[in-house]
Amino acid sequence: MKLSGERTMGASVAPVEAGGGAASAGATYSVRTDEDLITVRHAVRAATVETGFGLVDQTRVVTAASELARNAYIHGGGGTVTIEFPRNAGRRGVRLTVRDEGPGIPDLEAALADGFTTGSGLGHGLGGARRLMHDFEVHTEPGKGTTISVTRWNTQ
């Protein structure tokens, strides 16, 4: 699968707003428990429906949200998920930004390369989430936490 968009590793770079696009302000959900995970999934599902995503795209985005949110509360000791609705060249999208203040990801390359075929479900679920979304950005600093921003565009 092709990946578009930039991916920053280590260094902290402000996200670039795609040309002509205006992202409307989003809602933020906290993820500290199992139940929060279900709430996030519901909110993300509603967001994808609102954006006009088909059933498969809805499933992709909700699954990615589930992976990232679980990471935040298992590896990051809890965090937040923000849902936004960016626009770019006539396309609408859903952007999820997952933040935690955990230990950070020591080896980002390894976390992302959790393997296309191993399928063990171990690691950070990052690689999987990245494959399900169009744009993917990570900022992580040891001891300071991790922010992951993913976007999927409506291609229908």
Binding site: M1, T59, R60, D114, T118
Partner: peptide, 11 residues
Amino acid sequence: PVAITLVELGL
């Protein structure tokens, strides 16, 4: 949709 997402996830 679940089957598609699973294979894309690499599972």
